[in-house]
């Protein structure tokens, strides 16, 4: 910040052109700055959303020159096809597990670090964050090594106690748990830091006053801290679901490919499978549109609680 003045001087001295402001061009100027990002988002985000919606009314295989209009058939299929129903149910299981592993547990740990351990926050932040730097493919490889039923370290360790690691890839439920644990390994530190930062913004004096009045610590946290930190918490909660459902794609594709019998698949992976493995573009587009609507609802929850709170504060 020290070189502010010299920066201005440099800017002043290097200015060319007249001092008069150019009004007509000035009005278009902000749009010029917005142009690159707006163009990219339009071409690769907004138009594709519309086109996916359009494709969801057709039967197509991604290659054929003609598309067959089928009306709402793909949407009916989303909710009536037994595989799709299984996948939707799996998605709900994923959401519950992701919220427990990637939101509730990091929140609990961030409360401990913020309120129970004094001034040692720095090293924990730095170390917890490290797996966030690594690819989920690395995580998937590490977990399939650790949990390898034949030669993995856990299997060798348990063998001494006469126990075995189950063939977890043969069970949809167990595979889902392992896949969620892999994303937990990656995002735990990230979510922990977001939540800890939120807690750091809770005014200290309120807490100290409450503690002086002899109110037990956990009640202070429950009645004062958690409500005050609601904005950040809901943001991380929504992020956990939105990002988590996309994060699990990688370990699913690397380890189970959605199996056994779609047992570990979810809405997003099933969309990919329909689009690029089974070439059922219409089905995939309907699934993608349903996912989009679910995420949109989550976005509105986020706005209602988080952005709304910001405006109140302003």
């Amino acid at each position: 910040m020290l070189n502010n003045n010299s920066q201005i001087e440099k800017a002043v001295n290097s200015r060319s052109g007249p001092r008069v402001s150019r009004k007509p061009r000035g009005r278009l100027l902000p749009f010029l700055y917005l142009l690159p990002s707006a163009l990219l988002l339009l071409v690769f985000m907004i138009v594709p959303i519309g086109y996916t919606f359009y494709l969801s009314f057709f039967n197509w295989n991604l290659i054929a020159p003609t598309k067959q209009f089928v009306g709402l058939a793909n949407y009916v299929n989303v909710f009536t096809d037994p595989t799709n129903q299984k996948v939707i149910l799996n998605t709900l299981v994923y959401i519950v597990l992701l919220v427990i592993l990637n939101f509730i547990i990091p929140y609990f740990i961030s409360l401990i670090v913020n309120f129970f351990i004094g001034k040692m926050k720095g090293p924990y932040k730095i170390l917890f964050f490290i797996p966030s730097l690594f690819s989920l493919v690395v995580g998937a490889m590490l977990f399939s090594w650790i949990l390898n039923p034949v030669s993995g370290p856990l299997a060798l360790f348990l063998r001494d106690f006469g126990m075995k690691v189950p063939q977890w890839t043969n069970s949809g439920a167990m595979a889902i748990v392992v896949i969620c644990l892999i994303t937990n390994w990656k995002v735990f530190g990230y979510n922990f830091i977001l939540l800890l930062t939120g807690l750091g913004a809770v005014p200290r004096n309120i807490l100290d006053a409450a503690t002086l009045d002899g109110i037990p610590k956990w009640r202070v946290i429950w009645n004062i801290v958690l409500p005050l930190n609601k904005g950040v918490a809901i943001y991380v909660f929504i992020l956990t679901i939105v990002q988590g459902l996309q994060y699990v794609f990688t370990p699913i594709n690397v380890i189970t490919q959605g199996g056994p019998y779609y047992g570990s698949s979810n809405l997003l992976y099933h969309t990919y499978l329909n689009a690029f493995v089974l070439y059922k573009t219409g089905n995939a587009s309907a699934l993608a549109t349903v996912t989009f609507v679910i995420f949109l609802i989550l976005l509105f929850i986020e706005i209602k609680f988080v952005e709304g709170r910001k405006q109140d504060a302003d």
Binding site: I49, L287, F295
Partner: peptide
Amino acid sequence: TIFVPFTTVMIP
């Protein structure tokens, strides 16, 4: 756009 799932845009 942060909330748009990648599956919704991947085909186009």
